Amino acid sequence: MTEANTVRFNEEALSWDSNPSVQLATALAHKAYLARLPPPEILSTYDIMDLGCGTGLLSLALAPSVRSVTAIDAAEGMIAALRSKLEQQPPTPGSNTTPNNDPDNNNSPNPPAPPPPTNIHPIHTLLTSATSPLLHHDPLTHLPTPTPRRFDLIVSHLVLHHIPSLPTFFATIHDCLHPGTGRVMVTDFEDFGPAARQFHPESKMDGVERHGIQEGVMREVLEGAGFVDVKVERAFEMGKEVETEPGSGVLGPAVVFPFLICEGRRAA
């Protein structure tokens, strides 16, 4: 990821979760992943990596379903935001006495928020190698491992359009997976023509390497990196308000953006 991306995402980290498009896209991606992953009894054994995790929205959504999540991002501000979430203390029993809005139960307090998961390990780095010493850590046991860990699944959401070299990116992912069984599953908006450029306002174009991803290109990239059982398909669509005129900063009616999900398995 380029320096321009890192600077931008450091600046936006504190307000990132307040963007409704970010929240909606993450929720839709999470649903798409779960629909394509093994049943709970198998998925619960998975050690996964969320590459380009941002503030951890997807990591936090997936954490209850898997054994562990190694959450990696090149922007220090994003990782700091995730760490802050994971360090939040659960409320003291009986401390939450705010009435709810249930007309049939006006005196009942809102249920306390669940404690943050303990199986997420945030890492601030630009991951370029499967041999990184930062991968010598088990998020569940909090113990070092003698060799870099390999993963059952690597996910990445709304990251690919910021990556200068997709072949290099997927070569690193390939090497971080378990041979024979490890899978990659990534989502990003589709390049469906000139209108796809509208996904970003003009003020945020610095660091955007491509305006979405294309099915044929992604298939070639995954197969070129050594993945087998490659599948690229539309996963969902999402409406997003776009600028009425490029650079105006004024948002108008929503445009529907299709999202692709790209999958592959590392060969034995």
Rank of each mutant, 00 (worst) to 15 (best):
S203F: 13
V221N: 06
L43G: 01
Q214L: 14
T172M: 05
R234H: 08
D206T: 13
L166A: 05
M1G: 02
N100M: 13
D229A: 12
E220C: 02
R8W: 10
T2S: 12
T97A: 10
I48G: 09
M78L: 02
P40E: 14
T118G: 05
A195E: 12
L60W: 05
G56S: 14
E215D: 04
N110I: 03
R210K: 09
E87K: 14
V232L: 12
C262Q: 08
I173N: 01
P93K: 10
G252N: 11
V69L: 05
T168A: 12
L28I: 01
A75C: 03
L28Q: 10
N107V: 04
A35S: 14
A195N: 08
V217I: 14
P144D: 03
P144Y: 11
G77H: 02
N107C: 01
S21Q: 02
T172A: 00
N101F: 13
T145A: 07
R210T: 11
I154E: 04
E12Y: 03
L58K: 00
N10I: 11
F9H: 09
K31P: 01
D191G: 08
L160G: 00
L134K: 08
L166T: 01
A75K: 01
S132H: 03
E243M: 13
F192C: 10
M49R: 06
L14A: 11
H121P: 00
M238K: 02
N110T: 14
E220L: 11
I42L: 13
S65D: 15
M49S: 05
P146F: 08
P64S: 11
M185F: 15
F169A: 03
F151A: 04
A27P: 00
S68G: 15
S132D: 12
C53W: 08
N10D: 13
I79W: 02
R265L: 05
H200R: 07
E245G: 04
N100F: 01
A74G: 07
E190V: 12
A267F: 11
G182M: 07
L251Q: 05
V217Q: 15
R67D: 02
P103C: 08
H142S: 09
N106W: 06
A130V: 01
V22C: 06
K240C: 03
I213H: 03
T128C: 02
Q89I: 15
F192V: 06
R8A: 11
N106Q: 13
E11T: 07
N96I: 15
E11C: 06
P39Q: 15
M185Y: 14
A25V: 05
G193L: 09
P167Q: 09
D191W: 01
A75W: 08
